[in-house]
Design a protein around this nucleic acid. Sequence first.
DNA 1: GATTGCCGGTTTGTCCGACAATCATACGAT
DNA 2: ATCGTATGATTGTCGGACAAACCGGCAATC
Lengths: 246, 246
Amino acid sequence: MNRQFDQIQMEPAYRKVAAAIGGRILDRTLREGDRLPPETELARQFGVNRSTVREALRELESNGLVMRRAGSKLMSVTRPQHFAIAGAVTRGLVMHDVTFREVWEALTLLEPPIAESAARARTADDLAVITAAAERFASDNAATEKAAHGSAEFFRSVGAATHNQVLMLAQEPLLQLLEPSLRVMIDDVPQARSRIITAQRKVSEALHARDTDGARTWMAKHIRDFRKGFEIAGIDLEHRIRVGES
Amino acid sequence: MNRQFDQIQMEPAYRKVAAAIGGRILDRTLREGDRLPPETELARQFGVNRSTVREALRELESNGLVMRRAGSKLMSVTRPQHFAIAGAVTRGLVMHDVTFREVWEALTLLEPPIAESAARARTADDLAVITAAAERFASDNAATEKAAHGSAEFFRSVGAATHNQVLMLAQEPLLQLLEPSLRVMIDDVPQARSRIITAQRKVSEALHARDTDGARTWMAKHIRDFRKGFEIAGIDLEHRIRVGES
DNA sequence: GATTGCCGGTTTGTCCGACAATCATACGAT
DNA sequence: ATCGTATGATTGTCGGACAAACCGGCAATC
C-alpha cells in the first residue's frame, strides 16, 4: 500500500493538440512534405483557440517534426534533421555536466567498430567523400576553427559509410561535444595536425582495401592520440564540457 | 559567384526569447531547480506580449530545459531527462525509416564494449542493480510486455554501471526501438526467454568477476541471439520500425 | 516573351484584454 | 496543531485585432 492512487494529471490542451498532430506524423497519415492546414483552420478543427494551436506548433517545431520551408508560410511536415536531433542530445549532455573523459571514452568504444563496419559497407562514393574529407583537412592549414571542424567531418564521413542511421545519430553528439575541446588541443599541440593527418590517411587506406582490422585498429589509435593530445595540452579530462554559444 | 548574398533570415520574437532564456540555462546563469519568473514578468522584461513568452516556453519545455514541477505553477529549470532526450532521438529515427537491421547492428557494435567497460567500472551497487534486473526477468513469467521491458532494463542497468552518461544516452534510443520488436520475438520464439536468462546470468557473472573478456563475449552472444530469434520469429530485418503509440 | 508593378486575399507574428481554475499563503476557527 | 477560508498570484484558454509577408494573377512595360 505504498501509494493507493496514481497521480492524476491534467494534460493542457496545447499538449493534446501537439500529440494529435504529432501522432499523425509518426504514423505517416501526414507524410513528409505535406503542408499543415493554416492555424485558423487547425483551431477550428480542434475546437480550440488559435493561440493554443500556436503553442502546440512550437512544440512540434522544436521536436523537428514540422518546420517552415524557406519562403513559405504554411508549416510542412519534415523528418527531423540528424544535426538538430543530435543538438538536443548535446544540450542534454552539457546540462548533465558530462566530462571530456566520458566523451573520449565513448569515442573509444564507438569509433573503432564504426570504422570496421564502414570497411565492410562502404561504397565507392563513400570512399570518395571520406578521402575528400581527409584531403581537405590535410591541405587546409588555416584557422584551428576549421581544423577542428574538419576532423569531426572526417568522422562523420566514416560514419556515413556504415549506411546505418542509428550509428550516425549516436555518433553525432560525440562529435559536437568533441569539437570545442579539439579546438584548444590543435592550437596547443604542434604535432597534433600531422598525427591526425596520418591517422586519417591510414584509416582511409584501410577502408579502401576493405581491411576491417586495419580500419578498426587505426581508428583506435587515432582516438588514443586525442587523449594524448589532451594531456599534452593540459586539458583536464574530468572537466565539465561547456558550450561556446553557437 | 554561385550565390552572391546569404539568405537573410528573420528570427521571430518567440525564438529569440527562447534562445535568450535557453542560453542562460546552458551557461548556468540559471541553475537547475531555479524557478523562472512568471510569464507576465518575463513579458515585461523582454518587452513582448505574454503570448509570445508562452510560445517560447513551449519550445524550452519540449527541449526539456524547463518543466513544471508537480503541483507548482512556476516553470523551473531542469536538466533534460535521459528518457525524454532519447525519446526525441527515437522519434527522429522512426521518421527516418530506420530498420530492425540497423538497430540490431548498432546494438552489436555498442553493447559488447559497454559490457566490457561496465566490467571495469562497476561498483558493488551497480552489481546489485544488475543482478536484480536479471532476477526480475528470470522470475517474472508474466506478460510478454513486461518481459520485453525487463530485457531492456537489463541493458540499462549494465549501461549505468559504466558510469558514463554519454554511453547511457547513446544506448537508450536503441533500447526504445528494440522493445517493440522484442515483444513480438519473445511471444513467437518459445526458447527465447531461457536463452535471454542464460545470457543475462553469464554477463552478470562476468561483471561480478570483473572479467572484461567474458562480459564482452557473452554480451555479443546475447545480441547475436536476438538476431536468431528475429529470424525464427520471421521478423523481416529490413522492415521499418514503427512506433506503437505510447 | 520576359520582367516589373500592382492588387486583393491568406496566413502568420504579435499584441491586447479578459476570465475561470488552480496554487500559495496567511489568517482565523476549532 | 489541524482545518477551513479568504486573498492574491499565476496559468490555461479564449476572443478579437492589426501589420507584415506571402501568393497568385493581371496589367503595363521593355
